[in-house]
């Protein structure tokens, strides 16, 4: 009964202050759309960095003159290591062969070299979950202790850069999300505060007639929730348009955009996020209702 009446009051108020409310919905939508874009960015950076470890490997260069038995011993020991996904032995000849393939038409640079200067090596691919800056560093240090291994090489700088980019992007995104969320809360706060002051006399009368805090708050909370959901739905529409025109249309002409993904969870959660931020803004705006 009480909630139905509160809903009626909320709808009446939304209609009475329709222009303020339309502006608020649009502002909330802009904030939520930017939050969605930030999530979209983080999601794609995360996706890209997740794919990189698949290609990541550590090269173990062997001492010259190792016997086949010794090499087999090293390979077997590596295969037993639970952190390692794949082990591939590359002989001196194979290394030269691969170099010639890489150089293709420029293999003239190898002319005049009588003796194969390349060392035999073992390529080690690590399990994806273990590819982290510190994890790889520790493993490399363990590999160096193995007898017969002269040098260990892994793209330390490359790995470091990837993780720095990921951490940086996450931090900036988190900051942006917090700022945008605070903005959405502030818009709801301001709108409800304006409406509250416009209805101050009416609320005072309600209090004198015996209205509880819940009865006074309910229409405003509903109104804040509706504003938030309205903003969320509008932002969702914006995100869908963005997804369709920018990604689908652009991907058709520029295939590089095909790797970019717009996760559907973002679309679905926008009205819910709007609703929660709207209610939070309203509750802050209403504060503690006093009866004296």
């Amino acid at each position: 009964m009480y909630l139905l009446y509160s809903l009626r009051l909320a709808i009446q108020s939304l209609w009475r202050e329709k222009w303020i409310n339309v502006l608020s919905v649009l502002t909330i939508a802009a904030g939520l759309f930017m939050i969605a874009l930030t999530f979209f960015g983080v999601y794609n950076i995360d996706l890209a960095t997740k794919k990189l470890p698949e290609r990541f490997s550590v090269m173990l260069y062997l001492n010259d003159g190792l016997q086949e038995q010794e090499i087999d011993g090293i390979v077997t020991a590596l295969k037993k290591n639970s952190s390692i996904e794949m082990v591939r032995f590359i002989s001196k000849n194979k290394a030269m062969e691969e170099l010639r393939t890489v150089l293709k038409n420029a293999d003239y640079v190898l002319e005049g070299i009588d003796e194969n200067p390349l060392p035999a090596s073992i390529e080690v691919k690590l399990k994806q979950a273990l590819v982290s800056v510190s994890g790889v560093k520790n493993l490399a240090s363990d590999f160096r202790k193995i007898k017969g291994i002269e040098e260990v090489e892994y793209g330390e700088q490359f790995l470091h850069s990837i993780y720095s980019i990921k951490t940086g992007a996450n931090t900036i995104s988190l900051l942006l999300i917090v700022i945008m969320s605070a903005g959405v809360i502030f818009v709801c706060y301001s709108t409800v505060k304006i409406v509250f002051y416009r209805r101050k006399d009416e609320i005072e009368t309600f209090k004198l007639l015996g209205a509880t805090r819940g009865f006074i708050r309910a229409p405003f909370v509903i109104e804040g929730g509706i504003l938030g959901v309205g903003g969320g739905v509008t932002a969702m529409a914006g995100a869908l348009v963005f997804n369709y025109f920018l990604l689908h249309k652009l991907a058709a002409t520029m295939p590089v955009f095909k790797i970019i993904v717009f996760p559907s969870e973002i679309f679905v959660s926008l009205p819910l996020v709007g609703f929660m931020l709207g209610i939070l803004g309203t509750l802050i705006a209403l504060g503690r209702i006093r009866f004296y």
């Binding site: 007639l209 015996g210 209205a211 509880t212 006093r290 009866f291």
Partner: peptide
């Protein structure tokens, strides 16, 4: 308690 005031006001017509 301040929260009881609404319920008491319901006993008073003004």
């Amino acid at each position: 308690k301040e929260s009881s005031i609404p319920f008491l006001r319901r006993n008073i017509g003004v």
